[in-house]
Design a protein around this nucleic acid. Structure first.
Lengths: 173, 173
DNA sequence: CGTCATTAGTTTGGTACCGAACGATCTGCG
DNA sequence: CGCAGATCGTTCGGTACCAAACTAATGACG
């Protein structure tokens, strides 16, 4: 890791920008701590997602969202659509489309619940189980790479801090 | 916040699932610390983004990405397309489309650079400056809400931990 | 000068994703 | 029963987003 002249220049450039922004805001004080924390969440998520799709998922023809669906179904065996959408952080309309795709690929199957025909139970097919069992270890190793340089305690702390944000963002939705 | 019976049940449910997954993986050990840390990044990002769009940005007709573009231009005054895409975490093709939208709304303008006609300098219009100056304080307050319950030190720590992940995910791209 | 590799931005084709409106099914209450 | 609301999944219209192919402009080297 280089901590050199250009890093220092970059830091100065950022400080100048920070001052400029503050000036433009007048006396309304800027909450930089929150800004950094929250905006880095988005940057990290986008970067991790893109890289995962390219390096781990593309070879299996899976998008990040599709992977998540398979993973959740693998863990919980079968799940109703609404719950699955919630667990995967997707709007239910989005899930419908992705399940169509996954169904065409014979990775998942849908079954209407007899006792309540509005509801649908989604589960993995054998092919789907095979796929996620194959790709998951690679994905988990990738997660390890992405948190390289963090101790186990730091990873736990990161997860904890993020849980607070998730709660705030999900609260009284 | 309730720490009650159903929370405990939920925790047990999760532990069971964890054991099941581990069993399914056989002797290949699962890196739960990395899994939690990384997957929470994505959950947090999606939750924050959706909420920001609904509660802060929708009233201004801005998407999260569009907001980011305006914000970056506000901070840096003007910027070439490639650099702007990088700063906003967008593929350059994506940026083209979003700039078209923003241009139609008269929020940004594009100017070819005379000395090198391939390049384009993007900057805010007066309307754009007005828009971001109006919405940003609200957005920053929202970021504060999202990190509610975290001390300033914890926010800085969160930002720092995420920077490590960002570096890992961006490294040798 | 001309041609070839490089670079900047745009176009293209395709998926993911959202919110809102919808249609089907269930449930409670008269 | 029967019908008024609630609840489930799907459909619809629209944006955002990516990677890869393309186009125009530049610059380097003969």
């Amino acid at each position: 890791m280089s901590s050199n002249a250009s890093d220092r220049e970059e830091a100065e450039r950022l400080l100048t920008a920070e001052r400029d922004v503050q000036a433009r805001l007048g006396d309304h004080p800027l909450d930089f701590a929150s800004l950094d924390a929250i905006s880095n969440i988005y940057r990290a998520a986008a970067a991790v997602r893109r890289r995962a799709e390219r390096e781990v998922l593309a070879s299996h023809g899976l998008s990040f969202g599709a992977f998540t669906i398979l993973w959740v179904l693998w863990v919980w065996d079968e799940m109703e659509t609404a719950q699955l959408a919630e667990e995967c952080n997707l709007a239910k309309g989005t899930l419908t489309g992705m399940l169509n795709t996954l169904e065409k690929q014979s990775l998942v199957e849908r079954n209407r619940i007899e006792s309540d025909k509005r509801r649908v139970l989604v589960s993995l097919t054998d092919r789907g189980t095979e796929a996620i069992a194959d790709v998951f270890p690679r994905f988990n190793a990738f997660e390890g790479e992405m948190s390289n340089g963090l101790s186990v305690e730091e990873k736990r702390e990161l997860a904890r801090l993020l849980r607070v944000v998730i709660t705030n963002a999900t609260d009284s939705d």
